[in-house]
């Protein structure tokens, strides 16, 4: 199960946008596997959001192809509606798209659009809301009564209720406080591990993706500059910094310690691994 992006390019004219008339994705190739959390990182304006909008046909590539389980999504026999249901896209600040009086009705919107029976719509909405951490008693609450983090989760449930194979999220943690962030990532992790939903995540935060992703695509200026495991990507600290990105704090500390002559292994991108490596280092010294 995979989404394959093949030599995808995209051009558009946009008179009202920041940097003038055109913005471009250039010759992007990558494979997104369902059983592996994929993160897409890059500075603002690198094309991350544009790229993910291609995955469910909100934008149409100027050149190149996208294969969903081996079949081109641009093929005549490929149903757009099926694709939108299979690849659920959660935009930045998705809570602003809530429009019903209560979250349950709002979450029903997606499955209803799929033309499902009322029972099925409601059972899906219920499942989705439970999956993002709401309880039955919350269903009738108005989006306006909820906290920012809860509203965000309700909006994600709205996409989840379409029961997508993949959930693609654009900056899902933007603007949340630390507690909201933590809850959100735990929830996404659960969706992936327990419900088998493929997760694609666009993010600015290196610390978030180091802990979370199995694979990272780094975009800069519309091109893929890295496509690798977090361990390998975050060993390129210098290159990442030249494009305005950075490494996770753990990798940063490991870099300094190596300069200081500590003998540390590669791939120390999370605090857990770094802690073990440092204690090992000192234990070796004792012997």
């Amino acid at each position: 199960m995979s989404i394959e992006i093949k030599n995808l390019s995209y051009t558009y004219n946009n008179p009202g946008s920041e940097n003038g008339s055109r913005f471009v994705l250039k010759n992007i190739s990558a494979t997104i596997k369902k059983d592996e959390i994929t993160a897409i990182i890059g500075p603002t304006g690198s094309g991350k959001s544009t790229l993910v909008q291609h995955l469910n046909l909100l934008l149409h590539a100027s050149e190149g192809d996208i294969l969903y389980d081996g079949r081109s999504i641009y093929g005549d026999d490929f149903d757009r509606k099926t694709l939108r249901a299979s690849v659920g896209l959660v935009f930045q600040y998705p809570e602003y798209q809530l429009f019903e009086n209560d979250i349950f009705t709002d979450v029903c919107f997606g499955p209803k659009n799929l033309g499902l029976e009322k029972d099925e719509v409601e059972s899906r909405a219920k499942k989705a809301l439970l999956a993002v951490g709401f309880s039955d008693s919350d269903f009738s609450r108005s989006p306006f009564e909820l906290s920012g983090g809860q509203r965000r989760r309700a909006a994600i449930a709205g996409v989840l209720a379409m029961q997508p194979e993949y959930l693609v999220l654009d900056e899902p943690a933007a603007g949340l406080d630390p507690k909201g962030r933590r809850e959100l990532f735990q929830m996404l992790r659960r969706l992936h591990d327990e419900n088998g939903v493929g997760i694609v995540l666009v993010s600015h935060s290196m610390d978030d993706v180091a802990d979370f992703a199995g694979k990272i695509l780094v975009l800069n200026d519309g091109r893929v500059i890295f496509d690798d495991t977090p361990e390998r990507i975050f060993s390129h600290g210098e290159e990442l910094r030249t494009v305005g990105l950075d490494v996770p704090q753990a990798a940063r500390l490991a870099e300094i310690l190596r300069e200081y002559g500590f003998d540390l292994p590669q791939g120390l991108i999370t605090m857990d691994r770094l802690r073990t490596a440092i204690t090992d280092c000192f234990n070796r010294g004792d012997k």
Binding site: L58, F91, Y96, G158, M162
Partner: peptide
């Protein structure tokens, strides 16, 4: 721009 974004978001939900 916001309108554009909302339309896309609801389209993604099958609207």
């Amino acid at each position: 721009e916001e309108l554009d974004k909302i339309i896309k978001a609801q389209t993604a939900r099958g609207a």
